[in-house]
Design a protein around this nucleic acid. Structure first.
Lengths: 121, 121
DNA sequence: CAGGACAGGGAAAAATTTATCCCTGTCCTG
DNA sequence: CAGGACAGGGATAAATTTTTCCCTGTCCTG
């Protein structure tokens, strides 16, 4: 893994939350697992546009942060399943809020808003 | 500005939200403005650990996304103030949720949790 | 005038994240 | 046995973000 040269600033709650879901594909991965897409290969299939290697890296980070848990079954063709930890599940409402806001405002944010909307402030 | 070579995937609401607050200092900047720290130099003072150049870049992005609005007063030593647009203000509850989750879980996320917490799933 | 606050940005480097390529294994099925 | 699914990772490149350094102006105050 990459060794950081600039120490992270993680006293702020927002920074912590962004660290957890700020990765390019992390939220999507969490969403997969929450929907029960648990096995690595299944996640890879779901997220076909993303390189499997990347997904694995993100999964490892999520595991190290205690968001997902990796269960390795002692079966013959060793099976692996990811699931959310308690803390990981506590993240779901947060993701829902993000998703809702994003969906409500995606056109605006990406759009050509020469017209800025100002309210009373 | 940097010209992207890989097109962004912004159909997903989460991706949009992360784009808005995922930058390293964006949420902090938004927090400054929401607290009324409006002038560039004031924001720079608040965020002393961050290079002013970076703050300016992030401000520009936030402006382009329609989250903040830049008001240039036609005064003699041209004064500039940033404030949140309506959409920018709609982001505040979202940030609050992020911040609360982060504060509640920062020790856990950064901590040495060899002990993964699993609930019923 | 000297110095500092103020707003802003170019150029280039460094740091970090993301992506690509390809390899090592095991096991199961046809 | 051949091929494919499965889990995983090293090495390296590319893309993106962040940082540093330094420059251009205006205006105001001592």
């Amino acid at each position: 893994m990459y060794q950081k040269k600039i120490p992270e600033v993680l006293d702020c709650g927002i920074a912590v939350a962004v660290k957890v879901i700020g990765g390019k594909w992390k939220a999507w991965i969490i969403d997969c697992i929450r929907r029960g897409v648990a096995r690595p290969s299944a996640i890879h299939r779901e997220m076909e546009v993303v390189n499997p290697r990347i997904i694995n890296l993100h999964l490892k980070e999520l595991e190290e942060m205690g968001i997902v848990y990796k269960e390795i079954f002692a079966e013959v063709p060793a099976r692996v399943e990811y699931r959310l930890t308690t803390v990981g599940r506590s993240l779901l409402p947060v993701i829902n809020v993000l998703e809702q806001w994003g969906n409500e405002n995606k056109e605006y944010v990406n759009g050509h808003h020469a017209e800025y909307i100002l309210g009373n402030n």
